[in-house]
């Protein structure tokens, strides 16, 4: 009986200890995650360049998800990464008030540096990163032309420091497909300073180990390159109907040919 009582007491103590420990880990995880959110809320340039609500909310929702555990070490790495990016942005674009303004001022090296920081932070958090290299803002909407020198000059992206071959400058300027820098394309007859273009090469999509989306940038198909959070909620049935009619037409043609050949045989 004595042994049984001892066993019972030990089990109760173990359960309570485990519960407390678990609570502490949970609280630590939560506070560690919250520190990332708080850091992001500060933005850059003394709070004048703010993180978009939709971006911030994606971080909040990830951190607060029931399946996410952020350790203090992970949070430290993430916070260091945020601070590093903040430092780069503040040195390159101290007057920037929007992402676009900041991205315009960043050099190719700085963009590469930021990408590497994102990779490092994501690795620490166990996330996968895929950058939208040169496909979004940089390709169709990134406008960097500011002068009026050569109308069709190129103003590609600053990735490899070579002139963009495909990019055209101006209000609808498109970027070099290969993410190359259009040094000569700084000017253009229709060149206007890109105010709405966003740099595709700095727009990552983050997924967790299970492949679930953690962060995705706003869709870059908004007007003038502004991202939109609104999805296409129409059904593209037209394609299905056309395909179906095409199948019917092919079947009809086949039937017609068979009938024709039968008549010849007869």
């Amino acid at each position: 009986m004595k042994r049984f009582m001892m066993g019972f007491v030990l089990a109760v103590v173990a359960c309570i200890s485990f519960g407390l420990l678990n609570g502490q880990v949970s609280a630590a995880s939560n506070s560690a995650g919250q520190s990332i959110i708080k850091n992001l809320e500060n933005g850059a340039n003394g709070g004048k360049l703010k993180v978009n609500d939709s971006d911030l909310n994606q971080v909040r929702n990830y951190v607060n998800s029931g399946k996410t555990t952020v350790t203090q070490d992970q949070a430290n790495i993430a916070n260091n990464a945020i601070n590093e990016v903040r430092g780069i942005v503040e040195s390159a674009a101290p007057d920037a008030r929007t992402y676009t303004q900041a991205v315009e001022k960043l050099s190719a090296d700085q963009k590469t540096q930021i990408r590497n920081i994102v990779y490092k932070a994501a690795r620490a958090l166990g996330l996968s990163v895929m950058f939208n290299q040169g496909t979004a803002g940089n390709s169709s909407n990134d406008t960097t032309g500011t002068g009026a020198d050569t109308p069709n000059d190129t103003a590609g992206n600053a990735a490899n420091g070579t002139p963009g071959a495909d990019g055209t400058n101006g209000s609808n300027g498109t970027n070099g497909k290969n993410g190359t820098n259009g040094v000569a394309g700084e000017t253009g007859a229709n060149g206007v300073n890109g105010t709405n273009g966003t740099d595709g090469s700095l727009m990552p999509t983050l997924t967790d180990r299970a492949g679930n989306v953690v962060y995705q940038p706003a869709s870059p198909n908004g007007s003038n390159g502004t991202g939109t959070i609104v999805k296409q909620t129409g059904n593209d049935y037209l394609i299905s109907i056309i395909s179906f009619l095409a199948i019917l037409a092919v079947a009809g043609l086949g039937y017609g040919l068979i009938r024709k050949n039968q008549r010849v045989d007869a």
């Binding site: 609500d53 939709s54 971006d55 909310n57 994606q58 909040r60 929702n61 989306v213 995705q216 706003a218 959070i229 609104v230 999805k231 909620t233 129409g234 059904n235 049935y237």
Partner: peptide
């Protein structure tokens, strides 16, 4: 579907929900 960049119902902020026009909504 709730946009993952919006807030959950009950949080202080906006919950943005989308649905297809010919079916769900």
């Amino acid at each position: 579907g709730m946009y993952n960049g919006s807030r959950f119902p009950g949080e202080r902020g906006t919950t943005l929900v989308a649905g297809h026009n010919v079916t769900a909504m």
